[in-house]
Amino acid sequence: MALSLLPLLLSGCASLNRHHQALLVLGDLSAGSETSRLKRRTEPPRREGLHYEHQGRAYQADLYHPPTLNRGSLILVHGFTEQGRRDARLVALARTLGRVGFRVMVPELDGLRDYSISTREVTAIVDAIRYATREGAETPSQTAIAAVSFAVGPTLIAAMDEAVAHRVSFVVAVGGYYDMTDMLRYVTTGEDRGGIGRAAPPPQREARWAVLLSQLHWLRDEQDRTLLESIARRRLADPDASVADDVRRLGPSGRALYALVTNQQPDRVEALIGKLPPALVNELEALDPSQRSLDRLQARLVLIHGPQDRVIPISHSRRLRDALPAGQARLFETEALKHVAVSPGWRDGWALWRAVEHVLALGERQQQGLKPHGSPP
């Protein structure tokens, strides 16, 4: 009888330890570069710079080796940041994850670093998955992936790629989008058509200019690119800055993109997208998870989103969860998030703690070679 209870007791101890570690993770993230209980109790991971290639495509990445590998591999995809893989917040997160047993790979993604996101990032994430799961190496045969905000779309599409879908155990998506058209509609007009319409929290004024910067590389006219970049950066620095002179000098493609970004009428969004350069329209469609068959996703999906998100509404994570088979995706709605940053005061920290605990549990199963709960058969 005593022997038969042993596995249950050990399982209970592991669960209690994981609950405690989730609290330590949240405390460490809150502490930033300051000391924390997790920092005092654990050794930091060792960072190694990587250079790797696939079919002539060259990449750089950082690999964080944990003191003890007990949760497997995780690829951390950065969002829009000019610092790329060395963004201080990203480095802090990678170190925190390393302290609790993940081997963390942070690839440098040029399009997310210079605001020129495209399907090139999908290819880069697929190649990172290939590297992290390469056969014959010490790394496990599967990896998890975590992404935030506008990086969630490319990450999901990469995780569905038939060459690597079976190598991804779970995906963590924080504040991500599902429908590209509805995301653009909300950012520019404030209507959340996939959710609660005009009753959604008002979008951040800066978001439209970030979207503009992310699509400039598709314009063939160099003057249009220069003018629109100047407009976007001036409006980011000062929302009321005068840009009328630059707008008058725009060519047809530049005017079409500017018209979309500054439009405030929800019903015009589809028509304005249709007037964009064909290459840009094709890219928007290619980066739209709602336009793809999600049955190619073999990984478990962990969605974390704030109900008051003013960049990408929570309706996107809800729709993404509902688009997958029951049990494959789990959504944690937490007021502790202000888009992808933890809000002051840790309001509703309970939900965020449950999300972290769930990720730690999935990591344990990955390292043990077990199938994550809720994965497709």
Rank of each mutant, 00 (worst) to 15 (best):
P372T: 12
H316M: 13
H166L: 01
R233G: 13
V261K: 11
L29T: 02
K275N: 14
V302S: 05
P307N: 06
G349T: 02
D87M: 04
S242C: 12
W346V: 05
V106N: 06
L29Q: 12
R167S: 00
L5R: 13
P67D: 08
V106K: 08
R89L: 09
Q264T: 15
V148N: 07
D322M: 05
D110N: 13
R268I: 02
H65R: 15
L227R: 15
L97E: 00
A22I: 05
P252C: 08
L10H: 09
W353K: 09
V356R: 06
R37M: 07
V340L: 08
E43L: 15
L8Y: 06
Q308F: 04
W350D: 14
D192M: 12
I231G: 06
H65A: 14
A237W: 09
L26P: 03
V77L: 00
A128Q: 07
D110A: 14
L76Y: 05
L38K: 11
R354W: 04
S343T: 13
R185G: 08
S169I: 03
Q291N: 04
S118D: 02
F80Y: 13
R185P: 10
P239H: 02
E335M: 13
Y52D: 00
G254Q: 05
S343M: 11
C13L: 15
H19R: 15
M160H: 09
L93G: 01
G363K: 02
Q328Y: 08
Q204N: 09
E138T: 12
T334Q: 01
Q21I: 12
G327N: 04
Q60F: 11
S33L: 14
L9Y: 05
D245M: 10
L9Q: 05
E34M: 11
G306I: 05
L5H: 13
R347C: 04
F170Q: 02
A207Q: 13
T143R: 00
Q298M: 08
V342L: 15
R47S: 10
G195S: 03
P66A: 07
V211H: 08
V261S: 05
S116P: 07
P377N: 12
T96E: 09
K338D: 14
R235N: 04
L337R: 03
G111N: 03
A58N: 11
T226G: 07
H78F: 11
P278H: 03
R37V: 04
D110M: 10
R319Y: 02
N263L: 10
T68V: 09
R113S: 10
Q291G: 06
G327C: 09
G12V: 04
G327A: 07
G56S: 08
V104Q: 01
K371M: 14
D245V: 10
H305Q: 10
H19D: 15
E191S: 08
S73L: 03
G306H: 04
L287E: 00
V152H: 01
F102I: 03
V152R: 06
R365K: 15
A88E: 13
E135W: 05
V91E: 04
T181C: 03
A147N: 02
R46A: 11
R103D: 11
L236V: 08
S73A: 08
